[in-house]
Design a protein around this nucleic acid. Structure first.
Lengths: 109, 109
DNA sequence: TAAATATATGTCAGATATGGCATATTGTCA
DNA sequence: TGACAATATGCCATATCTGACATATATTTA
């Protein structure tokens, strides 16, 4: 299984190796997960660019290191709201957040 | 007070008329609220375009009429996640969702 | 190598968002 | 006008997300 496919399934809350491997994601579910992954990548890119550790970013957005890690990994337990708020806290504009959503390019925002 | 300003404050969970009228929103809070309002407008525009009632849309996205109304009104109790999922359910692509986020134009998505 | 720092993963009690429901308000049409 | 459909608003029990914490696993540096 390709790494990104596996990641997508995991982001959907599935455990790879299950019988559910064969389940299909609906186009909507798929799009939703891709958006979250894209936002997570963008968050990591921005954080790295500013030479911040997850701990430092967590303090800035009043979250926790573990939640930052989960955001960047596309963990199914994190909301788009938190991702957006974090990006804004890193100085992204709404337009940059928007670009992060549909551009596969992690540099986008 | 301008209508959109009032709406923004209400979306932030404030009651206009309070002493809190004078509080300022941080740029991040402001941007976040504007994004939610923009998504709400886009949702309403798309729903109208497809001649769907709030009840019909609610059934399609397995939500409720009241939640649809709150989404479209920018109620502070609704998440961006639900707005995004609803737009996707109305046939919007991730790119259109993205455009809905930063474009003030409610037709955008 | 070991120590130090950064990131990943699992869990959980408390906080927030959710659908559903009742009901108020608005809009439409005869 | 009244009857009816659509939308708005308030409430609540439950589901989901949250920060915090512990701890495992990299990654870096001396």
């Amino acid at each position: 299984m390709r790494a990104d496919k596996r990641k997508k399934l995991e982001a959907a809350g599935w455990t790879v190796g299950d019988a559910q491997d064969f389940l299909e994601l609906s186009p909507d579910e798929s799009a939703y997960i891709e958006m979250k992954l894209a936002l997570g990548h963008s968050l990591k890119a921005r954080r790295s660019q500013q030479h911040l550790s997850q701990v430092e970013l967590a303090k800035r957005v009043k979250s926790s290191q573990s939640r930052i890690a989960k955001m960047e990994a596309g963990d199914p337990s994190v909301s788009i709201d938190l991702l957006v708020k974090s990006l804004l806290a890193l100085g992204a504009s709404p337009e940059e957040v928007a670009r992060a959503i549909y551009s596969g390019n992690s540099q986008a925002a």
